[in-house]
């Protein structure tokens, strides 16, 4: 699959020859320097962008059909909460669009806010929450219509490292609990290694896959794992892959 943008300065090959399969229940991280097309790849999967050539299938149907079926939840870099809705009504937004009954909507919102440890914050407005809490609310919003697939685009990129570590642990336990498939875009090596079952290393101009690394850490891992030699080995391989892509030369 590939994607070409036509611009005034001539075509830009955003992605080329991407071939990737994600299995059910996997946690796949896309990692690479900025401009390598990892976000674009995710947006193609979400049918927010169309590839110029090639095919994307989500659960056996086209990306477009998957979007029409609301088969995935998308978490953006920013929380993108609506400032005029309180947390509960932000979380129920997709349910409103689907046309779910009010009672059921509230039930769902409570359940998923509980899941991301935001119980009791239903009536607060976004600006009353910290950045990390806002992002958790947006994860609850992506989960609440119970899609099989979770697409996350650097969801913790704007947060500081301490909050990020904490959320990483929470995300991991969430993933273990719900068994969703997750595709996760990041530019942090420790984050990718810590979270994933598989790491896809990408390089820019054109965006392409350099390396795919399987990790086999236990599902209930903790942050301590980052001190182990296996972890460092995987992290090293990722770093090697990034370097091989000449990603920082130009």
């Amino acid at each position: 699959m590939s994607l070409t943008f036509q611009t005034a300065d001539g075509p830009v090959y955003a992605l080329s020859d991407i071939d990737l399969q994600v299995k059910h229940g996997e946690f796949v991280s896309l990692i690479g320097p900025s401009g390598c097309g990892k976000t674009t790849l995710l947006r193609i999967v979400a049918d927010l962008e169309q590839p110029t050539a090639g095919r994307v299938e989500v659960n056996g149907v086209s990306a477009r059909q998957a979007r029409l079926d609301r088969a995935y939840g998308y978490v953006f870099q920013a929380p993108a909460l609506y400032p005029w809705r309180n947390i509960e009504r932000n979380v129920t937004l997709p349910l409103e669009i689907i046309g779910m009954a009010r009672e059921e909507r509230r039930e769902r919102a409570r359940k998923y806010l509980e899941l991301v440890n935001l119980g009791g914050f239903e009536k607060k407005f976004p600006w009353q929450l910290s950045g990390g809490m806002q992002q958790r609310a947006s994860i609850a919003r992506a989960l609440c219509f119970e899609p099989e697939l979770l697409l996350m685009d650097e969801p913790f990129g704007a947060l500081d490292e301490i909050v990020r570590d904490h959320l990483n642990e929470q995300l991991l336990s969430l993933w273990a609990k719900t068994g969703k498939t997750v595709v996760f875009v990041t530019h942090s090596i420790p984050e990718a290694v810590f979270l994933s079952t598989r790491i896809v290393v990408m390089s820019p101009r054109p965006g392409r896959i350099i390396d795919v690394i399987d990790t086999n850490f236990p599902r209930d891992r903790t942050l301590d794992i980052r001190e182990t030699p296996e972890f460092l080995k995987v992290a090293h391989r990722v770093r090697e892959g990034l370097r091989a892509g000449h990603s920082y030369d130009d």
Binding site: R43, R70, Y72, F76, I97, I98
Partner: peptide
């Protein structure tokens, strides 16, 4: 764009 994309992912 982010918020519009969000609505798009919900097929609104």
């Amino acid at each position: 764009l982010l918020q519009l994309d969000l609505m798009r992912t919900y097929n609104a």
